[in-house]
Design a protein around this nucleic acid. Structure first.
Length: 490
RNA sequence: CGGGGUAUAGCGCAGCUGGUAGCGCGCUACGUUCGGGACGUAGAGGUCGGGCGUUCGAGUCGCCCUACCCCGACCA
């Protein structure tokens, strides 16, 4: 009872915060805006990482690592890029401390000032393109398909655990190509990988589309995004893939000799997802009892809780539980047998619900007598008593079923909260209620800006699968050829 | 950066018109419990964010810092 969560209906933001803390995913640190990711939260991130890393490697990418610090001057090479990040950079100006001559503590040694300040990377395009310059001379050196797993720092004004933190973990892919076409194909391939990951592993449906010019990545010619709808009706940008054109190649003078012997600038892409995905995962599925994790990303897929009075009963149960555990492990299912004597079953039930473990097995004396076991699924909270015989197959099937079920639940939610809107009045009313709005837009940044100012809604993306359809802009009444996706966003 | 708030035990909080700090949870020990967050008994734990001032006396009053939180502004 002490751990009761705030209800989603009472205060969604508070619910989210409570959940992150109480499910032991992360906590605020002593440093403003920077979080400590706790072991259980990190375990989920590791599962995400492992799967994404596999998908990147399957598509020919390799991992590398570039420096945390970037010379300040690099940021002045690509104008729009620096403009996008300048206001949120941490800057290293000195390299040494010394004892405060006036008393206690330490001070920054004024004699240890750096010739050129170093920027803690907010993203690595600049240092990577400066490096690629030395790697690329000929078309034979292309493509370069590199990813790095790293931390980055963006000095955000306001932060929220996982969703926006001053320091966060991510991967950033940076590729170099001989042709425009190939770079665009790469950009599209990676957004599709993100979409596939979101849907198949996070059980979270996403809309794939292009950002408008104003919402684009600083320095990109085109930005693809996956947009997910959270339970409170707000959108969460969950991954982006950028076609950078020749902007960075020109800024860092990266040219190659083509087959025809001509010197040409390289074509670039970059793409990334971050620990923000944790926020997406939490908000997409969880309920007032706690986390609901898709089996494919759950650090513990099955937990076995023994119920007993006295150690003789536990001694009966233990071998049966151990046997089930090892049989499940043999087929690749992660299992925890929680035989802690320090907590009662009811406590454990509540705890694993809070932590979103997809399947809970409970076995007591009654089950021991009858050759049964109690099986509870987290997504529906349904309990049933089933025979121990065939439990492995049953669980294998059920894990898949849960994975599918929570995807479908999220998908249904999105469908029920996506609205086609054709008038400005309707738009203003609907945006207050939340959800995705599909509406016509005249394609101008001015209109986009005005809509944002009046409603706080932004164009999340221009969906790539949008069908052509003549219509009138919901704001300006000017002609439009397709609907775009509006929402209020995180 | 604007507006609002908070700072007292590990966490959440109370402490009125000033008199030397308390509650719940958690923690430790022992016992009884154990099929949905157990109970009893006994304990441990606090320079009251920092500084200065008023006062015989400050968690409490005044001033000044600092940090954090919320709402806005900002945010590939």
């Amino acid at each position: 009872m002490a751990k009761a969560l705030t209800k989603r209906s009472e205060n969604y933001a508070q619910w989210y915060n409570d959940l992150v803390i109480k499910a032991d995913l992360a906590e605020n640190s002593a440093v403003r805006g920077s979080m400590v990711i706790k072991p259980y939260g990190y375990a989920i991130w590791e599962k995400m990482q492992a799967q994404l890393d596999k998908m990147f490697k399957e598509t020919g990418h390799e991992n590398a690592y570039f420096p945390l610090f970037i010379p300040k001057s690099y940021f002045s090479k690509e104008a729009s890029h620096v403009e996008g990040f300048a206001k949120e950079c941490a800057v290293v100006t000195h390299y040494r401390l010394k004892n405060d001559p006036d008393g206690k503590g330490v001070i920054v040694d004024p004699d240890a000032k750096l010739e050129e300040e170093l920027i803690v990377r907010p993203t690595s395009e600049t240092i990577i393109w400066d490096t690629y310059k030395n790697w690329i001379q000929s078309y034979r050196d292309l493509p370069i398909l590199i990813n790095q797993w790293a931390n980055v720092v963006r000095w955000e004004m306001r932060t929220r655990l996982f969703l926006r933190t001053a320091e966060f973990l991510w991967q950033e892919g940076h590729t170099a190509h001989a042709t425009r076409q190939e770079a665009i194909a790469e950009t599209q391939q990676m957004i599709e990988i993100y979409a596939q990951f979101a849907q198949d592993f996070m059980a979270m449906p996403v809309i794939v589309g292009n950002k408008t010019e104003t919402e684009r990545f600083a320095g990109a010619l085109d930005t693809y995004t996956i947009e997910a709808l959270m339970q409170d009706g707000k959108a969460l940008q969950s991954g982006t893939s950028h076609f950078l054109g020749q902007n960075f190649a020109k800024a860092f003078d990266v040219k190659f000799a083509s087959k025809e012997g001509k010197l040409e600038y390289v074509w670039a892409t970059s793409w990334g997802v971050s620990t923000r995905l944790m926020g997406a995962l939490i908000m997409a599925h969880s309920d007032d009892n706690g986390l609901v994790l898709p089996p494919k990303l759950a650090p513990i897929q099955v937990v076995i809780v023994p119920i007993y009075k006295g150690f003789d009963e536990l001694d009966n149960i233990r071998p049966v539980a151990q046997k089930i555990k090892s049989e499940l492990q043999k087929v690749g299912i992660s299992v925890k047998f929680d035989d802690r004597d320090t907590h009662k079953p009811g406590f454990k039930f509540a705890e694993y619900e809070l932590k979103g473990v997809p399947i809970r097995l409970a076995m007591g004396p009654r089950d021991f007598e009858n050759g049964t076991i109690e099986l509870a699924r987290r997504d529906t909270l349904e309990k049933s008593t089933v025979p121990q015989e065939g439990i492995v197959e049953r669980i294998q099937v059920l894990l898949d079923e849960i994975q599918t079920n929570i995807y479908q639940k999220a998908f249904r939610f999105r469908e029920e909260n996506t609205f086609q809107v054709d008038t400005w009045e309707e738009f203003k009313t609907q945006i207050e209620k939340g959800g995705f709005i599909l509406a016509h837009w005249d394609g101008s940044s001015e209109t986009e800006e005005k809509i944002k100012n009046e409603t706080k809604a932004t164009i999340r993306c221009i969906p790539i699968d949008a069908k052509e359809e003549d219509g009138l802009c919901v704001y300006s009444g000017k002609p439009s050829r397709q609907r775009v996706l509006f929402a209020r966003a995180y």
